[in-house]
């Protein structure tokens, strides 16, 4: 009915947070990597970049799901835009769907993103470990 509105709202919040963090202009941490005996200076992926993964997933998914809702006639280009909002009984059902399916969608996307952040962090640490051992 309108489950995509929950991840779309999370996308707005996450984008605002990312923009605010980028505006602060925190410089990415520089690290030295040992690649086959050659020492290279590289920049660690900043957190704002990782936050962009989350906003990309949320915006992309919400956009395609919004299209699905248009397809099923649940979203229309005239007020109140959601067909379920015109009838109180349908509106209650819509809110129930948003609080169950919509919230679960947002939570699962966030969990997947947290997994990606954890894996990328582990890969960064693994790349830095041989260097630290040599020092």
């Amino acid at each position: 009915m309108a489950c995509f509105l929950v991840p779309a709202t999370e996308a707005i919040v996450a984008t605002v947070i990312r923009k605010a963090m980028e505006a602060k202009g925190v410089k990415p941490e520089k690290v030295k990597l040992n690649r086959d005996g050659r020492i290279e200076t590289a920049e660690k992926l900043p957190f704002t970049h990782k936050l962009k993964w989350l906003t990309n997933l949320l915006w992309g998914g919400s956009a395609l799901l919004a299209f699905e809702h248009v397809w099923h006639g649940e979203v229309v280009p005239w007020f109140p835009f959601l067909t379920a909002a015109a009838d109180p009984a349908d509106a209650a059902e819509m809110l129930h769907e948003m609080s169950t399916v919509g919230v679960t969608m947002a939570v699962l996307i966030t969990v997947v993103w947290l997994g990606m952040v954890a894996v990328s962090g582990a890969l960064e640490n693994r790349a830095l470990k041989p260097q630290a051992a040599k020092n």
């Binding site: 489950c3 995509f4 991840p7 993964w53 990309n56 997933l57 949320l58 915006w59 992309g60 998914g61 919400s62 956009a63 395609l64 799901l65 399916v101 679960t104 969608m105 699962l108 996307i109 997947v112």
Partner: peptide
């Protein structure tokens, strides 16, 4: 990003 985001959401559905 678009396709994976939508896939995760449709998986929940």
């Amino acid at each position: 990003w678009m396709y994976w985001g939508a896939s995760i959401m449709w998986l929940v559905d």
